[in-house]
Design a binder for these strands. Structure first.
Lengths: 223, 223
DNA sequence: GAGATTATGGCAGTGACTGCCAGTTGCCCA
DNA sequence: TGGGCAACTGGCAGTCACTGCCATAATCTC
């Protein structure tokens, strides 16, 4: 019996309990993001989310430590995809090259992981909401800081360095992440949904790191 | 009478009301930081802070929008000092140079501005608390993001650039601020109070930005 | 010194979040 | 296949951050 079921479903390794939990979590996420989009983050109570997902408030807090966390649930997915993309770069690539390629690669694959939970349009409006809600922006920046450390550690590992002694991995990651954030914020302001546009913007921004450190900007304009 | 008082006190331009407000605010800050240091951030309620400062809880929230804000009150002072230091750099200095010099200069002057409110030792322990309390770290990172934008705008102004069109100011500031944060975190972990040590660490870290972007780390070690 | 401003205190109310206990459900093994 | 075990859930009471409202008291202005 189990063998047959396992053949039909993809990776039914986790039991019923596990699947149910994942389903509840996704339902909570979807309900929360829809409510946030419709009536704002502060205008939505946890009770409403729980009711929409047909669970008790107490259960909501067993899935998410706080209200912020459900708003950032998909950002966590993005982070994992991005880190996996870096880990997958061949070891011979220099650090900066590996980071750039990982950024482009994860930008192309992250879509379907998101779509498994909510439509992409809803995710985009959530990102705008995060950027404009102080509490959420703060929580997001902290997550990114943690992610940066993971990236720096991975870079150090690739290059065989001691991450505590050599500041270059952190320095490089800090510079790149700052650039990525600047690019994605500029992109998120006006355009809507043009993924290739974002990737192009990121690439041109990354190319500006070198010139930005040089002296005499006025003599040698950006482009 | 007022003329005599004014001669004794430095800049008594603001009236009694204004001075009283500043004093209440400083008292609240000092009481809060002392309580935080003694019993932790989460272990301290707003009521306790208000009682220690001898005001009502309602009044506390008229001085600080939330509990985080009082914990970060001195960080705000630091931010203003740092920005003023950049604004004071002569216009002929190239951007990166101006940023480095501003960092060093503000590091040397920020001490007394802090001492006017709480002893430096208390401020140091507060910084460690911020770094280790997720909620506070998040709020701090958001403040820094706002500050970065101000820095980028100022750099763009100095160089006569359109900050919306040219990404270099943001890129440069993002890189430097990432480096500063990494340096001050490393410094805050072990040492205690050696300000010159911090300034030296920051300088060496800033010098690593160039090498970090280069290829072939393994061939050309950090130092 | 009277009247306009502004700061303060107290209070009731909302909403996020937690600990606790009881009831239910999926899991595993004899 | 049934029964014991562990994990999941609901409900409730309680704490704490934070807000709106109104009355009172302190400054300021003329």
């Amino acid at each position: 019996m189990q063998a047959i079921d396992g053949a039909v479903e993809r990776a039914t390794l986790p039991g019923l309990r596990e699947r149910k939990k994942r389903r509840t979590r996704n339902t909570l996420t979807r309900c929360a993001l829809e409510l946030f989009a419709r009536q704002g983050y502060d205008g939505t109570t946890v009770d409403e989310i729980a009711e929409a997902a047909d669970v008790s408030q107490r259960t909501f807090f067993r899935y998410f430590a706080n209200k912020e966390e459900v708003a950032l649930a998909l950002q966590e997915v993005e982070e994992e995809v991005a880190f996996a993309a870096l880990a997958a770069r061949p070891p011979h690539e220099p650090p900066l090259t590996a980071l750039c390629n990982a950024a482009v690669a994860s930008g192309r694959t992250v879509g379907e992981a998101i779509e498994a939970v909510v439509p992409l349009g809803l995710h985009l409006s959530t990102q705008r909401m995060i950027e404009s809600t102080p509490q959420l922006l703060a929580a997001r920046l902290r997550r990114l800081a943690v992610l940066e450390e993971r990236f720096a550690a991975e870079i150090a590992r690739r290059e065989g360095l001691d991450p505590a002694a050599d500041p270059r991995p952190r320095v490089l990651v800090a510079a790149c992440s700052g650039v990525l954030r600047a690019a994605s914020r500029v992109w998120g302001e006006d355009e809507d949904g043009d993924l290739d546009g974002l990737l192009r913007l990121i690439t041109t921004y990354l190319e500006q790191i070198g010139p930005a450190l040089a002296e005499g900007w006025r003599a040698a304009p950006a482009h």
